[in-house]
């Protein structure tokens, strides 16, 4: 099987892997495919270079990064004989939406457009059905805290949790479990009044100020969103802004590079 065939099959099967290509230097175009466990196939033309690049590619894959790195001919650091383009095909980031409400369907749709693997989770089996959320990758009938006890450890900085239940009975345990995960975004829906009451309940439940400060609540950017669809845009825009570390303003009112 050629390197390309192996790459194509892995991408189609949704398996994460990294493709390293020599883009400058000897053996131009040589390829190394690296799996998350460090297993590699192909060669860049030097065993030591292969070993070093496989190690780096594994790290890039874990972080979901793609970049060109420079090495000596045998993989030495701080040399520039060989430039290797390491392209990560990481699993898509996840968005977990707690609460099977009208806003959920719209948010799931917009999140899908952005490339998220979307899970809708609600304890109420009548509401959380595949029929109501055909756009979701997964619909789970479970209590949010119980679900996070199962999958929480797998979540990282690229992932997002949105709590849309705005019912304290579900919200508080969901948020309490969510702040223990490593997600990059945690938002909770509700009016300013709901937010005040919920914050107090979270404090009563033993969450620290730092944990409470992680929660984007009320959820979303201030763009005057009203409908579920507009709200979904406001939430996703906030997810992006938090990831990029931008204070979301109109481009017209800011200076500096757009990307």
């Amino acid at each position: 099987m050629s390197r390309y065939d192996e790459l194509r099959d892995a991408l189609r099967a949704g398996e994460p892997l990294a493709l390293a290509t020599v883009v400058e230097g000897p053996n131009l175009g040589a390829k190394l495919l690296v799996r998350p466990d460090g297993q590699a196939s192909g060669s860049l033309g030097d065993a030591n270079l292969d070993r070093v690049v496989a190690r780096d590619a594994r790290g890039e894959l874990e972080a979901g990064l793609t970049s060109t790195r420079h090495y000596g001919a045998h993989g030495e650091a701080r040399e520039r004989d060989v430039s290797v383009f390491i392209e990560s095909f990481a699993l898509p980031p996840r968005m977990i939406i707690f609460g099977a409400v009208d806003f959920t369907a719209a948010l799931a749709k917009v999140a899908k457009v952005l490339g998220y693997r979307v899970t809708v989770c609600d304890a109420r089996a009548v509401f959380a059905t595949v029929l109501r959320f055909p756009m979701a990758d997964e619909v789970v009938n479970d209590w949010p805290d119980r679900y996070l006890a199962k999958v929480g450890e797998e979540l990282g900085p690229r992932d997002a949790i949105c709590v849309l239940t705005h019912d304290h009975k579900f919200d508080v345990p969901a948020i309490a479990a969510a702040v223990k995960t490593g997600v990059g975004y945690l938002g909770a829906m509700g009016s300013r009044r709901t937010h005040e009451q919920r914050t107090q309940r979270l404090r009563d439940a033993g969450l620290t100020d730092a944990e409470i400060a992680r929660v984007m609540s009320p959820i979303g950017l201030d763009i005057g969103a009203r409908t579920p669809e507009e709200t979904a845009v406001a939430v996703c825009a906030e997810v992006i802004a938090l990831r990029t570390g931008r204070r979301a303003q109109s481009l017209r009112d800011t200076a500096g590079p757009i990307h």
Binding site: V23, T66, T68, F85, E87
Partner: peptide
């Protein structure tokens, strides 16, 4: 053809 590096403002990322 793959984008392998960018400098300054550029509409598409490496990859």
């Amino acid at each position: 053809a793959r984008v392998v590096g960018i400098e300054g403002s550029s509409p598409r990322d490496p990859g």
